[in-house]
């Protein structure tokens, strides 16, 4: 009789350990310090639309923080032989992946909370008024885009046995979106298929492909909550066509976000669970 692959007790203990590691290694202090100070100065200096501005920066910062603090979280402990010890205790490999994900999630929540607390303090000092609903929506979607990159970084970290591949891969994916290279992929493929010549029109499906970017999906998903937040979002590759296609609907955006959140970590887990440590 095969045992259950996860236990809540194991996940809880490993999540607490992961969080405690971030505290012991001063990662948490660093992240909260930087983001808190940034929020404080930003809100102090800007007198309006603080919520929109914070989300604008969070779209860059949350994935960056997620990648920076997560890319070594599995493979680093693997090459240090920490798992030789943990897998001598009653934990499963799924406990390790999920415990690490929850631990990193808590670290990210703490960092983003610091950003907003800093912003509230800065705004209070400079007597800025806040749109509370925009702040709350921005917080949640900023956290969501951060968690997607926690999933990507953990997935890569669990997939590979090389610390260099884990960091190169995670930062590479981040830069792919920051430099807006994602939207070029369909055109590049078409260019290659046409024998190194640009085709006369954009390849079919290019707009659909663009909508699969987590940042485009974020824009599409945020729209019904706050149109003002959605139009100010950076890193969106798809152009807004007047009549929204099916794949630009908010529900489709939500689906894409869910996919980015679940698929990378699931693939990483599958590889981690089936390989020799």
């Amino acid at each position: 009789m095969r045992e259950r692959p996860v236990s809540m007790r194991g996940i809880r203990q490993l999540a607490r350990k992961d969080m405690a590691d971030a505290v012991r290694e001063r990662q948490l202090h660093l992240l909260c310090g930087i983001l808190g100070l940034f929020g404080l100065l930003f809100a102090y200096g800007s007198h309006q639309n603080v919520g929109e501005g914070l989300l604008f920066f969070l779209v860059f910062l949350a994935p960056l923080a997620a990648v920076a603090f997560t890319h070594q979280s599995i493979v680093g402990r693997r090459v240090n032989h920490e798992y030789s010890v943990l897998l001598g205790l009653p934990f499963s490999r799924a406990d390790i992946i999920l415990g690490t994900f929850i631990g990193r999630t808590l670290v990210l929540v703490a960092g983003i909370t610091s950003l907003y607390v800093g912003a509230l303090i800065g705004g209070f000092v400079s007597a800025t008024s806040f749109d509370w609903s925009v702040l709350a929506i921005g917080f949640l979607f900023g956290l969501l885009i951060g968690l997607i990159f926690v999933s990507i970084a953990i997935g890569l970290s669990a997939w590979t046995e090389s610390t260099a591949v884990a960091s190169g891969g995670a930062f590479g994916v981040y830069l792919l979106f920051v430099f807006q290279l994602w939207g070029i992929i369909p055109d590049a493929v078409a260019y290659l298929l046409h024998g190194f010549e640009s085709p006369s029109s954009r390849p079919p499906g290019a707009a659909f492909f663009e909508s699969l970017s987590p940042f485009d999906a974020l824009g599409n998903a945020v729209e019904p909550f706050s149109e003002q937040l959605a139009v100010n979002l950076p890193l969106i590759s798809g152009e807004s066509t007047g009549s929204a296609a099916l794949y630009q609907e908010p529900w489709f955006g939500g689906l894409v976000l869910a996919g980015w959140l679940i698929v990378p970590i699931a693939l990483g887990y599958w590889r981690f669970a089936t390989s020799d440590l």
Binding site: R24, E25, G88, P90
Partner: peptide, 24 residues
């Protein structure tokens, strides 16, 4: 292979190569 956690619960391991757990 079917019940690794049960084995790890009932057997103590001193591995050949090991790393301390974080900064504990």
């Amino acid at each position: 292979q079917e019940r690794p956690v049960a084995v790890r619960q009932r057997a103590g391991l001193l591995p050949e190569q090991f790393g301390p757990l974080g900064e504990m």
